[in-house]
Design a protein around this nucleic acid. Structure first.
Ligand SMILES: NC(=O)c1ccc[n+]([C@@H]2O[C@H](COP(=O)([O-])OP(=O)(O)OC[C@H]3O[C@@H](n4cnc5c(N)ncnc54)[C@H](O)[C@@H]3O)[C@@H](O)[C@H]2O)c1
Ligand SMILES: NC(=O)c1ccc[n+]([C@@H]2O[C@H](COP(=O)([O-])OP(=O)(O)OC[C@H]3O[C@@H](n4cnc5c(N)ncnc54)[C@H](O)[C@@H]3O)[C@@H](O)[C@H]2O)c1
Lengths: 235, 235
DNA sequence: ATCCCTTTGTGAACACATGCACAAAGTGAA
DNA sequence: TTCACTTTGTGCATGTGTTCACAAAGGGAT
């Protein structure tokens, strides 16, 4: 067989794979801290809560970094995944909206540990502007463009009320930002080439409620069909 | 009109559809507030940020609630989706871990508006236990089982440090809870029949970083292939 | 060097999700 | 009633993701 271009590590990593790489990374970090030097796909898959074939296929998209009969070198794999995810550089993040949620995010240590640095906090409320949170001054939203440029911000977190989100989104994309994490419960419209990811707790709860209701229906009511349950792990 | 009653409304709604129903619901709520009585799949799809064929297929899983040539009755559709998601009853939610994040969640009004009621706040820290937050007393984690039973809690939110999460998860599942929303960055292991959904901001940022890096590579470096960009909307 | 054991990397089958395109069903006008 | 027009609901093709199952590769013992 021709075998199609052995070099050229396929530059198209499936989105589903990308979403799992951070999971593997987290599991690997835990292992390296516990002094584990080498890990099999079976063990790593277990730690990450996925099927081992899936894990191997995911990793195979990055290249061939395992040793047959042995497994993967933990440190080396951490490095390769980090590089692939872009965590070898660090990213300046701005948080817009320093309310309940924005404050919690700003105080959270878990970002810095991966290469994310909170570089700016912005709010519209004069009561809040000037506050010192997690070692940063809260700046006025009017300064948005200037602050982002000065600090080299490339990822923006929107944690304002829904009503303000689209307008702020327009401003940051106009300023050249192409990565946004949105907590406001609205669908953001963005130009091509801009990535938006959203976190919506309300949606998560509604999905849980749906399944919870089903389980209740099952028990009390209707004929149970031969249809097995979702596994615990979420998507 | 007779409406449906082809009694076999398919009892297996695809997971991908379930995850979008809350989105449609939100869009519909906005419309009803603006006095819109009827909406076409095209318009609703636009508001929800999805393709209209997908929207129609999603809705078709709930039954045949549209009128050809006209569209969907907004109120009626809100009711049907709410019922399907289990939002016509209300759900008692307990938050475990009242730190930065738990506090933000407790103070958030957006849950109550859909049928979710924060019924209990629990923490291990004696400094925090007894605090009054969002009209609720923070109770000691030792009381977990008793409190959950007394308040009829059926959904638990875990917002503690990662180290405590699995153990707490074991306790709540042992107490009969089958729906968990987890903010701690660990993979929870649960018995069959228990649903866990997770929210991990760090993972979201890493996914954004991956794409951001790609875009940067594209511009500066390598030969650009005929491969189009992700659309902005996240999965 | 040979053999046995372990574990990777992947082809191939399957399962699930998306989106096009259109027949069927409804509205409203004449 | 008939016709023109709109919009739903869905069959079907295509695309994406998952899982099985195994050949190929490497390690270590003899
Ligand atoms: N708190 C939660 O647990 C939670 C959960 C789910 C979703 N959310 C969503 O996250 C967002 C923030 O929630 P919150 O509880 O922190 O709200 P909040 O009201 O406490 O904070 C919002 C902050 O945004 C600021 N703001 C308003 N308009 C602004 C503008 N134009 N520019 C800059 N800043 C502006 C406000 O001054 C305020 O400080 C909301 O959209 C909410 O729906 C919050
Ligand atoms: N704050 C954020 O923005 C953020 C972002 C992403 C993830 N997270 C995750 O969410 C979780 C909470 O984050 P946080 O910033 O609120 O942390 P935090 O330290 O502010 O709060 C944790 C709370 O949990 C309580 N706790 C600890 N052990 C407990 C136990 N056994 N039983 C009951 N309560 C216990 C602590 O007393 C504390 O009040 C962490 O796992 C964190 O990794 C937080």
């Amino acid at each position: 067989m021709i075998r199609r271009l052995p070099q050229a590590r396929d530059r198209g990593i499936p989105e589903a794979t990308v979403a799992r790489l951070p999971l593997y990374l987290r599991a690997l970090t835990g292992m390296t801290e516990r002094g584990v030097a080498t890990v099999s796909s079976e063990d790593l898959a277990l730690a990450a809560g996925v099927n081992s074939a899936k894990l191997r296929k995911d990793l195979s998209h990055l290249g061939s970094y395992g040793t047959r009969g042995v497994g993967y070198d933990v440190e080396y794999l951490i490095y390769q995944i980090s590089r692939e995810l872009g965590l070898t550089q660090d990213w300046a993040v701005a948080i817009i909206g320093v309310g309940n949620l924005g404050r919690a995010l700003a105080n959270y240590g878990g970002f810095v540990s991966r290469g994310f640095r909170i570089a700016a906090l912005l709010d519209a409320d004069p009561e809040i502007v000037g506050d010192r949170i997690a070692g940063l001054n809260v700046e006025h939203i009017d300064e948005l463009e200037a602050v982002m440029a000065r600090r080299g911000v490339s990822i923006v977190v929107i944690a304002t009320p829904a009503a303000a989100a689209q307008q702020l989104c327009d401003r940051v994309t106009a300023a050249g930002v192409t990565s946004i994490l949105n907590f406001a419960p609205v669908v953001l419209t963005v130009p091509d080439g801009v990535d938006v990811r959203k976190v919506d707790l309300s949606i998560e709860l509604q999905i849980l409620a749906f399944h919870e209701q089903r389980k209740a229906d099952r028990e009390s009511g209707g004929p149970v069909m031969a249809e097995e349950w979702q596994q615990g792990a979420s998507a």
